[in-house]
Amino acid sequence: MTSRKLGLALALALAAGTALADPSPAKKALIDKIVALQQQGLAEGLAANIIQGPLSQLTQAGRAALQQVPADKREATAKAMDGDLKKFVEENVPYLKDKISKAVPNTASALLDERFNEDELKQILAWAESPVSQKFGLASVELQKAVAQKVMSEAGPTLDGRLKTLQANLAKQLGLQPPPAAAPKPAASTPKK
Protein backbone atom coordinates (compact mmCIF):
# COMPACT_ATOMS: atom_id res chain seq x y z
CA MET A 1 0.00 0.00 0.00
CA THR A 2 3.09 2.19 -0.26
CA SER A 3 1.85 3.88 -3.42
CA ARG A 4 -1.47 4.64 -1.70
CA LYS A 5 0.37 6.19 1.25
CA LEU A 6 2.51 8.23 -1.10
CA GLY A 7 -0.58 9.36 -2.98
CA LEU A 8 -2.22 10.37 0.30
CA ALA A 9 0.91 12.24 1.35
CA LEU A 10 0.92 14.05 -1.99
CA ALA A 11 -2.75 14.92 -1.60
CA LEU A 12 -2.15 16.28 1.90
CA ALA A 13 0.72 18.36 0.60
CA LEU A 14 -1.52 19.67 -2.16
CA ALA A 15 -4.13 20.66 0.39
CA ALA A 16 -1.53 22.32 2.63
CA GLY A 17 -0.03 24.34 -0.23
CA THR A 18 3.56 23.44 0.64
CA ALA A 19 6.15 25.62 -1.14
CA LEU A 20 8.79 24.11 -3.42
CA ALA A 21 12.18 23.52 -1.76
CA ASP A 22 15.55 23.50 -3.57
CA PRO A 23 16.79 19.87 -3.58
CA SER A 24 20.10 18.77 -5.07
CA PRO A 25 20.00 18.01 -8.82
CA ALA A 26 20.20 14.22 -8.18
CA LYS A 27 17.44 14.36 -5.59
CA LYS A 28 15.32 16.60 -7.83
CA ALA A 29 15.62 14.07 -10.67
CA LEU A 30 14.36 11.29 -8.36
CA ILE A 31 11.52 13.47 -7.10
CA ASP A 32 10.52 14.42 -10.64
CA LYS A 33 10.32 10.74 -11.65
CA ILE A 34 8.20 9.84 -8.60
CA VAL A 35 5.87 12.79 -9.21
CA ALA A 36 5.48 11.83 -12.87
CA LEU A 37 4.57 8.28 -11.88
CA GLN A 38 2.02 9.44 -9.32
CA GLN A 39 0.57 12.49 -11.05
CA GLN A 40 -2.10 10.85 -13.23
CA GLY A 41 -3.45 8.59 -10.49
CA LEU A 42 -3.39 11.38 -7.96
CA ALA A 43 -5.28 13.75 -10.26
CA GLU A 44 -7.92 11.10 -11.01
CA GLY A 45 -8.39 10.00 -7.40
CA LEU A 46 -8.32 13.43 -5.83
CA ALA A 47 -10.70 14.93 -8.39
CA ALA A 48 -13.17 12.10 -7.79
CA ASN A 49 -12.90 12.48 -4.00
CA ILE A 50 -13.41 16.25 -4.14
CA ILE A 51 -16.53 15.84 -6.28
CA GLN A 52 -17.96 12.88 -4.35
CA GLY A 53 -18.30 14.67 -1.00
CA PRO A 54 -20.77 17.35 -2.04
CA LEU A 55 -22.48 15.09 -4.59
CA SER A 56 -23.22 12.44 -1.97
CA GLN A 57 -24.88 15.01 0.27
CA LEU A 58 -26.75 16.56 -2.64
CA THR A 59 -27.93 13.17 -3.89
CA GLN A 60 -29.23 12.20 -0.46
CA ALA A 61 -31.09 15.48 -0.12
CA GLY A 62 -32.44 15.04 -3.64
CA ARG A 63 -33.75 11.56 -2.86
CA ALA A 64 -35.54 12.86 0.20
CA ALA A 65 -37.03 15.79 -1.73
CA LEU A 66 -38.04 13.47 -4.56
CA GLN A 67 -40.49 11.79 -2.19
CA GLN A 68 -42.41 15.08 -2.01
CA VAL A 69 -42.86 15.14 -5.81
CA PRO A 70 -46.22 13.77 -7.05
CA ALA A 71 -45.88 10.08 -7.90
CA ASP A 72 -46.74 10.59 -11.57
CA LYS A 73 -43.86 13.07 -12.00
CA ARG A 74 -41.32 11.30 -9.78
CA GLU A 75 -39.64 9.13 -12.44
CA ALA A 76 -39.19 12.00 -14.91
CA THR A 77 -37.89 14.25 -12.15
CA ALA A 78 -35.43 11.57 -11.02
CA LYS A 79 -34.14 11.16 -14.58
CA ALA A 80 -33.71 14.91 -14.95
CA MET A 81 -31.84 15.06 -11.63
CA ASP A 82 -29.59 12.17 -12.71
CA GLY A 83 -28.86 14.00 -15.96
CA ASP A 84 -27.90 17.17 -14.09
CA LEU A 85 -25.64 15.20 -11.73
CA LYS A 86 -23.95 13.42 -14.64
CA LYS A 87 -23.43 16.72 -16.46
CA PHE A 88 -21.93 18.26 -13.32
CA VAL A 89 -19.44 15.38 -13.00
CA GLU A 90 -18.58 15.46 -16.71
CA GLU A 91 -17.89 19.20 -16.56
CA ASN A 92 -16.13 19.44 -13.22
CA VAL A 93 -13.96 16.32 -12.91
CA PRO A 94 -11.81 17.32 -15.94
CA TYR A 95 -11.62 20.88 -14.58
CA LEU A 96 -10.36 19.60 -11.22
CA LYS A 97 -7.96 17.13 -12.85
CA ASP A 98 -6.41 20.01 -14.75
CA LYS A 99 -6.07 22.15 -11.60
CA ILE A 100 -4.61 19.23 -9.63
CA SER A 101 -2.19 18.29 -12.42
CA LYS A 102 -0.87 21.84 -12.44
CA ALA A 103 -0.52 21.98 -8.65
CA VAL A 104 1.03 18.53 -8.09
CA PRO A 105 4.59 19.03 -9.40
CA ASN A 106 5.63 21.89 -7.10
CA THR A 107 3.55 20.82 -4.14
CA ALA A 108 4.49 17.14 -4.24
CA SER A 109 8.14 17.93 -4.95
CA ALA A 110 8.37 20.06 -1.82
CA LEU A 111 6.79 17.36 0.32
CA LEU A 112 9.02 14.61 -1.05
CA ASP A 113 12.11 16.79 -0.63
CA GLU A 114 11.17 17.58 2.95
CA ARG A 115 10.22 14.06 4.07
CA PHE A 116 12.59 11.75 2.20
CA ASN A 117 16.33 11.60 1.72
CA GLU A 118 17.91 10.60 -1.60
CA ASP A 119 18.32 6.95 -0.58
CA GLU A 120 14.67 6.66 0.44
CA LEU A 121 13.60 8.28 -2.83
CA LYS A 122 15.63 5.68 -4.75
CA GLN A 123 13.81 2.93 -2.85
CA ILE A 124 10.42 4.50 -3.51
CA LEU A 125 11.20 4.87 -7.19
CA ALA A 126 12.48 1.29 -7.47
CA TRP A 127 9.26 0.05 -5.85
CA ALA A 128 6.97 2.32 -7.89
CA GLU A 129 8.56 1.25 -11.18
CA SER A 130 8.60 -2.46 -10.35
CA PRO A 131 6.13 -4.83 -12.04
CA VAL A 132 5.11 -6.09 -8.59
CA SER A 133 4.13 -2.56 -7.54
CA GLN A 134 2.07 -2.07 -10.68
CA LYS A 135 0.39 -5.45 -10.23
CA PHE A 136 -0.26 -4.63 -6.58
CA GLY A 137 -1.77 -1.26 -7.56
CA LEU A 138 -4.23 -2.96 -9.91
CA ALA A 139 -5.05 -5.61 -7.33
CA SER A 140 -5.62 -2.90 -4.70
CA VAL A 141 -8.25 -1.22 -6.86
CA GLU A 142 -10.01 -4.54 -7.46
CA LEU A 143 -9.75 -5.42 -3.76
CA GLN A 144 -11.32 -2.13 -2.73
CA LYS A 145 -14.19 -2.63 -5.18
CA ALA A 146 -14.76 -6.23 -4.03
CA VAL A 147 -14.74 -5.25 -0.35
CA ALA A 148 -17.05 -2.29 -0.98
CA GLN A 149 -19.52 -4.48 -2.91
CA LYS A 150 -19.53 -7.15 -0.19
CA VAL A 151 -19.96 -4.61 2.61
CA MET A 152 -22.73 -2.76 0.77
CA SER A 153 -24.57 -5.98 -0.08
CA GLU A 154 -24.60 -6.85 3.61
CA ALA A 155 -24.84 -3.41 5.21
CA GLY A 156 -26.68 -1.49 2.48
CA PRO A 157 -30.24 -2.36 3.53
CA THR A 158 -29.46 -1.55 7.17
CA LEU A 159 -27.84 1.77 6.24
CA ASP A 160 -30.76 2.64 3.95
CA GLY A 161 -33.19 2.00 6.80
CA ARG A 162 -31.13 4.06 9.21
CA LEU A 163 -30.82 6.87 6.67
CA LYS A 164 -34.61 6.94 6.19
CA THR A 165 -35.07 7.09 9.96
CA LEU A 166 -32.57 9.95 10.16
CA GLN A 167 -34.29 11.81 7.31
CA ALA A 168 -37.68 11.40 9.00
CA ASN A 169 -36.27 12.64 12.31
CA LEU A 170 -34.66 15.65 10.68
CA ALA A 171 -37.83 16.44 8.74
CA LYS A 172 -39.82 16.23 11.99
CA GLN A 173 -37.36 18.56 13.75
CA LEU A 174 -37.61 21.02 10.89
CA GLY A 175 -41.38 20.85 10.91
CA LEU A 176 -41.48 19.36 7.43
CA GLN A 177 -43.87 16.71 6.37
CA PRO A 178 -41.98 13.41 6.26
CA PRO A 179 -42.06 11.44 3.02
CA PRO A 180 -45.09 9.16 2.85
CA ALA A 181 -44.39 5.67 4.12
CA ALA A 182 -44.47 3.02 1.47
CA ALA A 183 -47.64 1.00 1.56
CA PRO A 184 -47.02 -2.49 2.86
CA LYS A 185 -46.83 -5.02 0.09
CA PRO A 186 -49.62 -7.60 0.23
CA ALA A 187 -48.41 -11.01 1.23
CA ALA A 188 -48.20 -13.45 -1.64
CA SER A 189 -51.30 -15.51 -1.63
CA THR A 190 -50.79 -19.22 -1.50
CA PRO A 191 -52.99 -21.30 -3.73
CA LYS A 192 -55.71 -23.19 -1.93
CA LYS A 193 -55.50 -26.96 -2.07
Results as ranks from 00 to 15, higher is better:
R162N: 13
V132L: 15
P179E: 03
L111M: 13
Q173D: 14
Q57H: 04
S130W: 03
K97R: 12
N117T: 02
M152G: 06
K102D: 06
L37F: 02
L111C: 01
A108K: 00
E142R: 10
L30F: 03
V93H: 00
L12R: 14
P186T: 09
I124K: 07
F136L: 13
N49I: 01
D113L: 05
M81F: 13
Q38C: 02
K150E: 04
D22V: 15
Q52K: 11
E114W: 01
G7Y: 08
K97I: 00
L174A: 15
D82V: 06
L121S: 03
E75F: 12
V69I: 09
A146N: 01
L85W: 02
I31A: 03
L6T: 08
L112K: 05
G41T: 09
N106T: 08
A9G: 06
Q134T: 04
T165H: 07
A80M: 11
A64L: 14
G156Q: 08
S189N: 12
A65I: 05
L46K: 05
N106G: 12
Q40W: 01
D119W: 01
L20G: 01
P186E: 09
A19F: 04
A182C: 11
G17S: 00
R162K: 13
S133D: 05
K97C: 04
P180G: 08
M1W: 09
S109A: 15
D22C: 03
I124Y: 01
L85P: 00
D160H: 05
L66H: 04
A26M: 02
T18E: 07
K145G: 08
P184C: 06
N49T: 09
T107E: 13
T190H: 05
K193F: 12
Q149M: 07
Q144R: 12
E75C: 03
L125T: 10
A181S: 13
K192T: 09
P186C: 10
L6H: 03
E75D: 15
D84H: 11
L138M: 15
P94C: 05
E120Y: 07
L166T: 08
S56N: 07
A61G: 02
T59F: 07
Q149F: 04
A110P: 06
K185G: 02
T158C: 06
A43Y: 01
Q60T: 14
Q123R: 07
A71G: 02
T2V: 14
S3Y: 12
A187L: 09
A65V: 09
K122Y: 03
